[in-house]
């Protein structure tokens, strides 16, 4: 029942995103073409006849409802328009970039979750100690620093000063790989710094969440009972306390997934990483609106899907949520 309601609200939100994406350029002053071709750019079309022809080509002379219908149909069939800058289908551009973003986001999400759970549990277990305070303050500082600033610090240290890791990119340019292993190693080497940056900058919020929910679990009666039963400390900490502190963490995983994706947009720009964020950056510079819109749609869809999955996972872990 609940799953169905969640899925429904997911679809409604997705529809809102798609619709906003359609109406935004049409709400701009001037005609929609003005949004398509920036009047300040050098390739702005002044000839009214050409403009009319262009409008007809893009179907902008049809009634609004028909345009909307065509737009929806285009999205369903995977047509997101054409890039003005590269004259390629937007869908094709995005398909080339999406795996990189997913790789980066997925790695960081897994890594930061694992570290946050271990660190948060440890910190709560020794609450009030120096370790606890140091971890709490440190994570607050790192998670408040802008991601691109954290990233720059890592590039300077590991890339420019120590020269251990590549400065930028997703793989070595023009490299030809002899084996699958060589390819994996090269891509992995390029992934380390961006993934580390993203992990660090998303770690703080997760850590504080785990720590605080663990602290409140530790005060529960069942913990006292478990301790009175004489269970070993490890069982108490990981089996009883963390298992229960996990629930709020999973409930917030959706929000964290969204934060990780947006963080990735900045980090890719900084590291020249060939994902969606880099694509946004390149398109913003060239005022390539169809690409910006396409990226917005796909990123939104990814974030919303992550929300839905986290929600369903939460219901699976916590019977109380399932009943509600």
């Amino acid at each position: 029942m609940r799953a169905r309601r969640r899925a429904l609200s997911y679809l409604v939100t997705l529809w809102v995103v798609v619709t906003v994406n359609f109406f935004l350029p049409r709400l701009m002053p001037g005609d929609p073409l003005a949004a398509l071709l920036d009047p300040q750019s050098s390739d702005y079309v002044f000839d009214p006849e050409v403009r009319a022809a262009l409008a007809a080509y893009y179907g902008l002379d049809r009634p609004l409802l028909e345009q909307y219908g065509r737009y929806l149909w285009g999205i369903i069939t995977g047509d997101l328009g054409r890039s003005i800058r590269l004259n390629l289908p937007v869908a094709q551009l995005i398909a080339g970039r999406l795996p990189w973003t997913l790789l980066l986001t997925g790695t960081a999400l897994l890594l930061s979750s694992a570290v946050a759970l271990a660190m948060g549990a440890e910190s709560a277990w020794r609450r009030g100690s120096w370790t606890d305070r140091l971890l709490a303050t440190g994570s607050l500082i790192v998670s408040n620093a802008p991601v691109y600033f954290v990233g720059t610090a890592l590039i300077i240290l590991f890339g420019a000063k120590l020269r251990w890791l590549p400065l930028a990119g997703g793989r070595t340019p023009f490299a030809r790989y002899d084996s699958l292993l060589a390819a994996v190693l090269d891509i992995g080497r390029h992934l380390i710094l961006p993934a580390l940056t993203l992990t660090l900058s998303t770690l703080g919020a997760k850590f504080l969440l785990v720590r605080n929910s663990m602290v409140s679990v530790l005060g529960e009666d069942f913990m006292l009972v478990a301790r009175a039963k004489g269970l070993p400390e490890g069982r108490l900490k990981w089996g009883h306390a963390l298992r229960n502190a996990l629930l709020p963490f999973v409930a917030h995983l959706a929000a964290h997934a969204g934060m990780t994706v947006t963080g990735a947009l900045f980090i890719e720009t900084l590291f020249n990483y060939p994902g969606m964020g880099r694509l946004i950056f390149e398109s913003v510079g060239a005022r390539d609106y169809p690409v910006i819109q396409g990226v917005f749609l796909v990123v939104s869809a990814v974030v919303l899907t992550a929300n839905l999955l986290a929600d369903l996972l939460n219901a699976r872990l916590d019977p109380r949520v399932r009943e509600a």
Partner: peptide, 19 residues
């Protein structure tokens, strides 16, 4: 509820790119 479930940063970038 609806507005809070929208991915706000991508939306922000899109709007900023237009206006």
């Amino acid at each position: 509820d609806g507005m809070m479930s929208l991915p706000r940063l991508p939306l922000f970038i899109l709007i900023a790119a237009f206006i």
